[in-house]
Amino acid sequence: MNRRTFLKDAIVVITGAALPAAALEWLDPRQVLAENPQIRWAFLVDTHKCAGCGFCVKACKAENDIPYEASVTRTWIERYVVTQSGELLADSPQGGRDGFTSGSIDLPGGTRVSEEEIIRGFFVPKLCNHCASPPCVQVCPVGATYATPQGVVLVDRQWCIGCGYCIMGCPYGARFFHPVHKSVDKCTLCTHRLTRGDASACVEACPFGARQVGNLHDPNDPVTRAVVSERIGVLRDSYGSRPRVYYLGLSKEVH
C-alpha cells in the first residue's frame, strides 16, 4: 500500500465512521418527539352557531379558578351590530359572562338599536390563539411562558415575575394579571382536561356546538377536517403569529 492509497482509504473510513456518530448526536428522541408530536391542539369556533349565551365564560371561570366577579377572563364573547347607516357597534360587558340578554349595546349612554336598523348582528367568542409563533413567549424575559410540543401556550405561575411584557406583546388581549395569584394568566385550552381525555370546559359548556377543540395531527378529527376543507379565517393574520384558533364565518369587522 503506497502513501496515496493509505490516505485515500483513511479519509473514507474516517468519513464513514463520523457520519453515523454525527447522526446519533443529532437524533435526540425528545427533540424528534417535539418536532413531530402525535398531538397538535387547535381550536375551532363556528361564529354562525354562537348565540352569546355566556355559558362558556361561566364554565371557564369556574373550571380555572378565575374570580367570578372579576372583569378579567380567559375567554370572552364579543357582540357586533352593523346598522343600516354602516355604523359598527360592538360590546362585551363582563366578557359576555351573563349572556347578551339586552338589546341595548353596552356603550356610554346605553345605545339602543332598534331591530329594523340592524343589518347584521353576530357574536364572536375569543380566547388565547395558542399561536405557532407566539409573540408573548418571545418577549418573556425569564422564560416563564412557553409553548408545549402539543401547541399549547402556558404560563409558569411560580416563575412569572409579573413584568407584563407578554400582556403588551399579545395582539389578542388574551392575557391579564390574575387578581389572586398576581402572575400573568391566560387560557390553557384546559390542558388538564385534555390530557385526561375530556374536552375544554368552554367546549363542553357550549349548548350550540360553536366551540370545538381537536388534534390537527389526526386527519379524522372534526376540527382538522373543518380546517382543511372549510373556508376558515384567523384573527390578525398580519402579525405573523400563526394563530391556531380557527374561525368559521369570520367577518371583516372583527379584529
Partner: peptide
C-alpha cells in the same frame, strides 16, 4: 413588578 421578589430570575434564566 407584580412579583419583585423574583426580579433576580432575569439573571438566573434570562430568555
Amino acid at each position: 413588578l407584580q412579583s419583585p421578589e423574583r426580579a433576580h430570575y432575569i439573571f438566573i434564566t434570562p430568555h
